[in-house]
Structure formats: structure tokens, C-alpha cells
Design a protein around this nucleic acid. Sequence first.
DNA 1: TTTATTTCAGATAATATAGTCTTAAATTAC
DNA 2: GTAATTTAAGACTATATTATCTGAAATAAA
Lengths: 145, 145
Amino acid sequence: MSIIFSRQCEYALQAVLYLALNSNGKMISIRELTNKLDIPYHFVAKILQDLTRKGLLVSHKGPSGGFSLVAPVKDITLLKIVEAIDGSGFMDNCVFGFPSCSCDNPCAVHEQWDKVRNSIHKMLATKNILEMAGETKKPQYQIKE
Amino acid sequence: MSIIFSRQCEYALQAVLYLALNSNGKMISIRELTNKLDIPYHFVAKILQDLTRKGLLVSHKGPSGGFSLVAPVKDITLLKIVEAIDGSGFMDNCVFGFPSCSCDNPCAVHEQWDKVRNSIHKMLATKNILEMAGETKKPQYQIKE
DNA sequence: TTTATTTCAGATAATATAGTCTTAAATTAC
DNA sequence: GTAATTTAAGACTATATTATCTGAAATAAA
């Protein structure tokens, strides 16, 4: 687990990227997705349902049903996915955990944490999913064919 | 809770900073420290014991006993504290959680995460506790007098 | 229409993290 | 030496997170 995101969040990111890479118009089932990515079926099912409720995915029941990204893919960034799962403001808290840390009452790394926060924000917000899919040359989630 | 550290870690950071600011030669008890910082007594007790076993603090039993930083304070950075609690390599994992992400097989934000990691590392490693204590003008943990 | 496939929803279980309680051991001060 | 204070250690509880199980509802294909 990365230090910045929950498992839930990681699975969400993996899933969305998988959908971007592998659904060419068609829907992709939870079964396929979790098998290929080697992540837990039922847990991820709930996450996908959540992302669907939040309007990032569309779902369809029945045979040849599944999930796909909502158009336009260009507007979907990692940030949107993370915010859908962990909520916006997921980076607001003080590094020390001081409840009253603020610009007026800064902790010893308040300013530096601001820079880190900016670079994280940039990492999550600058590329859209389509660009990321393009960059991913030999992605982990294509290994299991 | 900050996105990067566990509660345990936050309490450790707060405690060490408190010791740096408030122990002038003398020992500081868990009771004083947890009262002033308004953090849970027994839980923090275990953390302090842990930091003591790892050689970052010294402890002393009995009246006027307590904890203090091990000299030289100049060598103690946030990084050392974090590593003592969460282990080194606490920043190594892939943002997506891909088990096989590496330089040879990079995820879509592998490079950018590297930059973030560097800025986090810098934030944690460049200042020692003494400098931080100096910078902290009106720290949260001095409110409750 | 029937059957197979799939998402949806809720209950349950497992594990990790956070936090509490109790007693023992050490040490200081009287 | 005795009593008070403090850390040390282990058992226990609470909560959050992760993961599984079961059955219902929808839908497509035969």
C-alpha cells in the first residue's frame, strides 16, 4: 500500500486505468477486471459501484454487461478518482497531526508540506486517463493474458 | 490523520518535538506530555517505549523520571523518527499499488512520484529537531499551560 | 420464455490500527 | 525501609479497513 492512498483508492485507480486501456467501446466485467489485475472480486465490485454512483463509470447488468468509463475520458484525472473515494481535502491535514496547525499557527514543516502537496496535486491532476493509458507501455495489468 | 503518516507516527513526531522544546536537561513524564499535547496516555506510552528501544530516547523510572532525547539532538531528524515507527522503505510502494512497478516497468506516474518522494524526503531529512523547535514560534502543544 | 450472466445490496468475517486497563518493576524522596 | 511516582509489559477492547458470502434484480441471448 502506498503511503498516500488506501487500498480502496489503489484498486480504484488500477480499475479505471484498466478500463481506459481495455474497453474499446465494450463493457468490461468485474470478473475479467479483477482476474487480470489480481485484486479481490467483491471488494472491487463495491468500489466500482461507488464510482458508478459518483458518475465516473457507467454500468450495465446482464450478459455482456459490465463497466466502462463515462465520456469524455479526457476529463478524468487521477485526482477525480481519488476525490471520489477519499473525498476532497484528503491532503489537508497537518503532517504532525496538530489540530490547530494553520498558516497563522504553522508547524515546523507547514511550508514544506505545502510544496509537497502541490507536487502531489500536480501528479494527480495534470494527466488525464487517456494520456496515462498511452504512456503505459508494458503495464502490470497486461501480464496475465 | 495526515495522508502520509499513521497516528502512531504523528504522535511520535509530536512527542519528540515536545521533548526538544520542553526538556531542559530534565526528564519529562508521559503524563505531562500527553496532557499538554492532548493525546492518549497509554497509546503514546507504548510509542515512547518503542522509540526508547530503538535508541532515540532515554527513559528513567521513578519520581522525576520520564523521557528525554538522546544526545546529540542535532542528529535527530523527522526521517529518523518516521523510520523508527513505520520502517525505512515507507515510501517505496507504487501509487497505483502495482506490485511489479519499477523503473523498467513503470506505472503512469512513476517518474512524478519519484519527485514527490524526493520532496517528502527533503522535508523530513533536512532540518534537525533542534532547528524545528526553534522555528516553532507558537506551537500547538504549548497552548495548554 | 427460459437460462445464463452480470451488477446491486446487505450481512458477515477477518485483519489492522488505535486505544484502554491492570499489574509489575524500578527508583526517588521522605 | 516505606510510600509515592514513574516506566514496562501484556492482556484486553474498540474502531476502521479490507475482504467474503449470499441472494436478489436486471438483462441479454438462446
